[in-house]
């Protein structure tokens, strides 16, 4: 079954002195993700919505196996991130701002390189390179060193490279960050295409309109906790205003009151 099941994951970080100052806290531990659960299905786009520092990236990094949850597990198409992390990595395409491309190489070289590491044969790599590069408008920049690319072009190269192996699970952390409307549109269009191909897509964002237009399901995370998780329709229905923004603000307010009590 090509579902992605996040089961009660908890992730706590030890804060260094520097981080304690930055976060204005005396606590040595930060619970970034607190007993989070949700399931994403093939043919759906699941949106993780939350304010800055809510724990979205942490959750996605746990799915990508870069970090291990303290407890709980994530099952990606039958493979556990804790036990079969290699299998998981082969099935997902992961994009986040902390995954950088080396400045010295060209998008074309890196695409081939990561394709090979995913065990794809060279012919297929070239085929996918042509498709994805033209799709994201990188064609003219395929032989330009990453270091010489604009921020947006780098982001597009990263997206193309994360999809080199045509993964069943696409996990994108704020994919439209730093992109102009036109490019952002081409990315979201592509996500819809992937969904229609039957892929399981998870994306995180703090932009409500992205969720509104794109997502079939939405989970709102605040302070590491899943506040609400349902189809977009049901989430909206749960509030008299039927407006995502109102719901979002209410939930944040509620959390702050709860936190103070």
């Amino acid at each position: 079954m090509q579902t992605l099941e996040v089961k009660n994951i908890v992730k706590t970080f030890k804060l260094s002195k520097k981080q304690q100052k930055l976060e204005k806290t005396k606590e040595k531990l930060k619970v970034a993700v607190n007993d989070l659960s949700f399931t994403a299905y093939p043919g759906e786009i699941f949106g993780l919505l939350g304010p800055n520092g809510a724990g979205k990236t942490t959750c996605l990094r746990a799915i990508s196996t870069l970090i291990k949850p303290d407890s709980g597990d994530i099952i990606v198409g039958g493979s556990s991130v804790v036990k079969d992390s290699m299998d998981v990595r082969g099935k997902i395409g992961f994009l986040t701002s902390e995954l950088k491309l080396e400045d010295h190489f060209t998008p074309s070289y890196l695409f081939t390189y990561f394709g090979k590491l995913h065990g794809i044969d060279e012919e297929l790599i070239e085929e996918r390179k042509t498709v994805l590069f033209s799709r994201f408008g990188i064609d003219n920049f395929r032989e330009v060193k990453v270091g010489d690319l604009s921020t947006g072009m780098k982001q597009k190269a990263s997206i193309a490279i994360s999809l080199v192996h045509n993964p069943e699970f696409v996990i994108f952390d704020e994919p439209t960050n730093g992109l102009d409307v036109l490019t952002a549109r081409s990315v979201t269009d592509y996500l819809v295409e992937l969904k229609n191909e039957g892929k399981t897509v998870i994306l995180s964002t703090h932009i409500l309109s992205v969720v509104d237009k794109l997502c079939d399901k939405v989970g709102i995370i605040i302070n590491g906790k899943m506040k609400i998780c349902d189809t977009l329709e049901n989430v909206k229905k749960s509030h008299p205003s039927n407006d995502l923004e109102e719901i979002f603000f209410d939930l944040i307010e509620e959390d702050e009151l709860g936190g103070n009590a």
């Binding site: 990595r89 082969g90 950088k100 491309l101």
Partner: peptide
């Protein structure tokens, strides 16, 4: 430079 993470998410 954050490029090792890109390598670490490959199988």
């Amino acid at each position: 430079r954050g490029t090792i993470a890109t390598l670490l998410v490959t199988p």
